[in-house]
């Protein structure tokens, strides 16, 4: 089972003008096996939610809670959260010069599982994932994210999702900057993950495009650091037709 419960989460960042509250009370529960989409205009706090759950030091949690299967995520360090079963596919994955993808993946897998993967099956698993993500064999020898195209970075994120097999995946604008072919490859990767037992997905996006490939169970509209509306997949269609205007006006 895997349940991610976000309760009344308030988050601030430090700016030159002092602290600024970005999340103003977010409550959201992702139950076993559910996919939730968070949609909202730029600057509404979607990425802040993603990075706050993952534990990025830039974001200060001022109140509220985040529980993964009842465990207090906010008490955990960044790496403990990952080992507990959280995964964040980043919008802007970070370059790590001189560290090969192969070394990185093996180190991460070892950390998550608490033991080194069996060499023979591991190589097969990695090659299989690379092939499905349409990344060629030499990709494993490149430095992590260095010189990757936008599409390669996102496919590499989803390859990690596949191999590290978390309980709950948060995908932060994984669709941004992808052409239609790469979007399909990435979506198929996410869907393969969803087919596994009890996996939760929090899909953060600005556009409805990706939701044609990854069908959410629930859609939340995010405006000004809060959930402004919630519904089923039909809410995405309505947003597609009418945009965010009625929410942003209401928020002013």
């Amino acid at each position: 089972m895997s349940t991610l419960e976000i309760k009344d989460l308030h988050v601030q960042v430090t700016t030159e003008d002092g602290p600024k509250e970005i999340l103003k009370g977010v409550t959201l529960t992702i139950n076993d096996g559910e996919t939730h989409a968070i949609m909202g205009p730029n600057g509404s706090g979607k990425s802040t939610l993603a990075y706050s759950i993952a534990g990025h030091p830039r974001y200060e949690i001022t109140s509220g809670s985040v529980l993964l299967d009842g465990e207090d995520v906010l008490e955990m360090s960044v790496d403990e959260r990952a080992r507990a079963g959280l995964f964040l596919a980043m919008q802007y994955p970070v370059e790590v010069p001189g560290v090969s993808v192969a070394n990185f993946l093996r180190t991460a897998k070892t950390a998550i599982d608490g033991e080194a993967p069996k060499l023979r099956t591991w190589v097969k698993d990695v090659n299989g994932v690379m092939e499905r993500m349409n990344l060629d064999a030499s990709f494993s020898q490149r430095s992590v994210n260095e010189g990757f195209s936008g599409g390669e970075k996102k496919r590499h994120e989803i390859a990690q999702l596949d191999l590290l097999d978390p309980k709950v995946a948060i995908l932060d604008e994984t669709d941004s900057g992808l052409d239609i072919d790469a979007l399909k490859v990435v979506s198929e990767g996410v869907n393969r993950f969803r087919e596994r037992d009890g996996k939760g997905v929090l899909l953060i996006t600005h556009y409805t495009r990706i939701l044609r490939y990854i069908q959410p169970d629930f859609v939340h509209v995010f405006v000004d650091g809060r959930v402004a509306d919630e519904g089923g997949p039909e809410l995405a269609d309505e947003l597609e037709a009418n945009g965010y205007e009625k929410y942003t006006k209401a928020a002013v």
Binding site: L88, F104, A111
Partner: peptide, 17 residues
Amino acid sequence: FYLRSRGVSEKEAQRLV
């Protein structure tokens, strides 16, 4: 942060970097 978000401990992440 990137490495740690993949479960790698802080010290191990420093070694890698």
